[in-house]
């Protein structure tokens, strides 16, 4: 009994701690996030297995964790109103070239991070080239450039002469 109970408690507590630490935690894989990811795994591993290293215990733990994952996805599907609490909500942080600094401060997002996302996703160089930058619920930053997306711009190209 305690194997499944440990797995449930560790999963719920870990999920809750990461959810409450804010979006930027583990949102992007920086060096710090990688260290955190590795250490959290190491710190919780013994709490999961206790002193039972049998195959059956490992199997029970994995099955319990997978079942919890599936359960969470069902909760999101059946109770859409729970989704913001479970995942958070996206938020605009750059609007028509203007950085919304109060929002950025509260979410601990910096301008260099936004510009980095803009460069990587769309090859943009400056804030005024960004129509919208959105902090997604998973902590990543999505960019809508001025003039539309790459696909929009590609679609707007005049047809090749015959």
């Amino acid at each position: 009994m305690d194997s499944a109970l440990r797995a449930i408690i560790v999963f719920v507590v870990l999920w809750l701690l990461i959810r409450l630490s804010g979006r930027r935690t583990l949102g992007e894989v920086t060096n710090f996030d990688l260290v955190l990811f590795l250490i959290i795994g190491g710190a919780t591993q013994r709490a999961l297995t206790g002193q039972d290293y049998s195959l059956l215990n490992a199997f029970i733990i994995v099955v319990t964790l997978l079942m919890l994952n599936v359960l969470l996805s069902f909760v999101e599907t059946w109770f859409p109103r729970a989704r913001p609490w479970l995942n958070g909500i996206p938020m605009i942080i750059v609007e028509r070239g203007r950085a919304l600094r109060w929002r950025m401060r509260r979410s601990r997002v910096t301008e260099p991070e936004i510009l980095s996302a803009a460069r990587q996703l769309h090859g943009l160089e400056r804030l005024d080239q960004i129509k919208f930058a959105i902090l997604e619920d998973d902590g990543s930053i999505s960019i809508i450039p001025e003039g539309g997306s790459k696909q929009d711009r590609a679609g707007a190209q005049p047809p090749e002469p015959p």
Partner: peptide, 17 residues
């Protein structure tokens, strides 16, 4: 600017500040 930042935007996403 801080006041307007607390207002919900509707596009491109529906916010809930």
């Amino acid at each position: 600017d801080a006041l307007s930042e607390q207002a919900d935007r509707r596009a491109p996403i529906a916010e809930d500040m």
